[in-house]
């Protein structure tokens, strides 16, 4: 127990150290890589690149936090509405986890489940947020590459975003 706490504390120190060193190190490499293939002026962009990384990291963190909060609330609600589920004996998980189990899997059903206060609706909503997080991450990347004034990569990410969005429409979800 004490060991894990210490490891955790060391981890926190280590990461901040790494970040500082990373910033220094990348500043150092700029000169060398710039001399080889001067395709893109990274020197000018260094600050913007850092801001972009932080923006992408933040989007992921927020998406994940919202998803977890919704899923946990939904799980809590499910158990609160079905006290039998929370016993240690006398019921089985099996009817809930079969292919024939009833749970919301379209937007309409999800809305209905939420309206009647079914915990599984809330879990479903959390899962939708979780699934949407990588898509949102790509959308933010389009913006950050545009902000870095990097047209080739902006087009690349825009293409990825288009394919992702079309996959949702094709899927009919």
């Amino acid at each position: 127990m004490a060991d894990t706490t210490r490891a955790g504390a060391a981890g926190a120190d280590g990461t901040s150290g790494a970040r500082a060193a990373g910033a220094l190190g990348s500043a150092g490499t700029v000169g060398t890589s710039g001399a080889g293939q001067p395709r893109r002026k990274r020197e000018v962009n260094e600050e913007k690149v850092r801001q972009s990384e932080i923006a992408i990291s933040l989007v992921l963190r927020i998406g994940v936090s919202v998803a977890v909060a919704l899923v946990m609330a939904g799980l809590g609600l499910t158990f609160a509405r079905h006290p039998g589920y929370a016993h240690l004996s006398g019921s089985s998980y099996h009817p809930l986890t079969m292919l024939s189990s009833k749970f919301p899997h379209t937007i309409g059903q999800l809305g209905h489940a939420l309206a009647i206060g079914d915990g599984r609706g809330l879990i479903g909503l959390g899962l939708v947020v979780l699934i949407a997080t990588p898509v949102l991450r790509v959308a933010v990347a389009v913006l950050t590459f545009a902000y870095e004034k990097d047209p080739p990569m902006t087009i690349v990410t825009l293409f990825v975003l288009a394919v992702l969005l079309s996959s949702f429409f094709i899927g009919g979800a």
Binding site: A67, V68, V71, M72, G74, L75, T78, Y93, L96, T97, L99, S101, F103, P104, H105, T106, R120, I123, G124, G126, L127, V128, L130, I131, A132, T133, P134, V135, V163, L164, S167, F168, G171, G172, A173
Partner: peptide
């Protein structure tokens, strides 16, 4: 995974009681 998650969700393959503890 997100590119195919929509299909799986719509087909009813994502069961909330299984997916909730897995996700968290």
């Amino acid at each position: 995974a997100a590119a195919s998650a929509g299909f799986y969700f719509a087909r009813g393959q994502i069961d909330p009681i299984i997916a909730a503890p897995v996700a968290v």
